[in-house]
């Protein structure tokens, strides 16, 4: 049953990709195909990163409502990049090779995520609501700090970052595609390799220990992967709050299973379909000017509310 559904999802994704590449093309194909191809590659990377990060995070948090975005991961990354501009000054910031800044921000991101969310996740699980609320408020705090830092920098420099803090699928920065793809594929591969361990972790702390795993160490490893994946996708397109929640919930619906060997590809396919298909539909077919991120946030927000109201009511 799952294999058939995965095949169907792949087929749908194939159609969406074709649509994205050919629809509304004006001009020579030799220009359009590589131009759109690079953006498509970035979209696919982002889609897989977000779905995988969300799935991993939900497994260690043992909660189907929490996602890295809801807990403020992407806001944290945007803040780190902004603070880098703030402290290094934009002239330096731009003079330092982009790659170095990028990797430094990534390293800081991994550390900060471990410190902040590691302690939050490893604390006693008695009050999941307070934990979620903490995440949401932390996200708000990071966003305010980002906006504060951007205001402290000259209005001129403000422009440098503003580009980096909105979800935008249309003007994807493809300069770093190579490095990001490498990082991202590495993290995705690592996630795939631990898929069986993830299945065991999902059983719960005591069951996982009984079967010989160290949940604490596993949580740290998974948090590192999540931090890298979120950083890469945020660097590409900016924060999209509810995409992860939306696609992973859909994956649980389409391929209900406790096995990450099924859930990981299923969520990745649905995520890619949502981004590529949604972008094609919104931009090339309907001709709407609203960014896809806004639509996803609206739908995902409603889903989140519905999940909270039905699942958490006792």
């Amino acid at each position: 049953m799952h294999a058939k559904r995965l095949a169907f999802l792949s087929l749908a994704l194939g159609v969406a990709i074709t649509g994205y590449m050919v629809l509304g093309a004006r001009g020579s194909w030799s220009f359009i195909l590589p131009f759109r191809g690079a953006k498509l590659a970035a979209l696919l990377l982002v889609a897989m990163s977000i779905s995988t990060a969300t799935l991993l995070f939900q497994t260690i948090a043992r909660n189907r409502i929490l996602t890295p975005s809801i807990m403020g991961f992407d806001a944290l990354y945007v803040m780190i990049v902004t603070l880098a501009v703030f402290f290094l000054g934009s002239r330096n910031f731009l003079a330092i090779p982009e790659l170095v800044t990028y990797l430094t921000a990534l390293a800081v991101m991994v550390l900060a995520a471990l410190l902040l969310f590691g302690t939050l996740l490893l604390q006693t699980r008695e009050d999941i609501m307070r934990m979620m609320l903490t995440g949401v408020i932390l996200g708000a705090l990071f966003r305010s700090l980002t906006s504060f830092a951007t205001r402290m920098i000259d209005p001129n420099e403000y422009a440098v970052i503003q580009v980096a803090s909105y979800a935008r699928f249309n003007q994807i920065d493809t300069d770093l595609l190579g490095v990001s793809a490498l990082l991202c594929l590495g993290a995705l591969l690592a996630a795939w390799r631990i898929r069986h361990r993830l299945d065991v972790l999902a059983l719960g702390r005591e069951a996982a220990i009984n079967l010989g795993l160290n949940p604490r160490r596993a949580a740290i490893e998974v948090l590192i992967l999540v931090a890298v994946l979120v950083a890469v996708s945020t660097a590409f397109v900016g924060p999209i709050a509810f995409l992860g929640l939306l696609v992973v919930s859909l994956a649980h619906l389409v391929t209900p299973s406790g096995s990450h060997a099924i859930l990981l590809p299923s969520a990745a396919l649905i995520s890619a379909l949502t981004l590529v298909g949604g972008q094609t539909l919104l931009d090339r077919v309907l001709g709407l000017s609203t960014p896809l991120a806004v639509v996803i946030d609206f739908l995902g927000g409603i889903l989140f509310l519905a999940l909270l109201l039905t699942r958490m009511r006792r």
């Binding site: 009050d127 609501m129 609320l133 949401v136 946030d297 927000g301 989140f304 509310l305 909270l308």
Partner: peptide, 16 residues
């Protein structure tokens, strides 16, 4: 905390 969380998300949806 659930009430507060639901409120934040509800506000966010209207904002979107």
């Amino acid at each position: 905390y659930l009430v507060a969380l639901v409120g934040l998300i509800y506000g966010g949806i209207i904002g979107a």
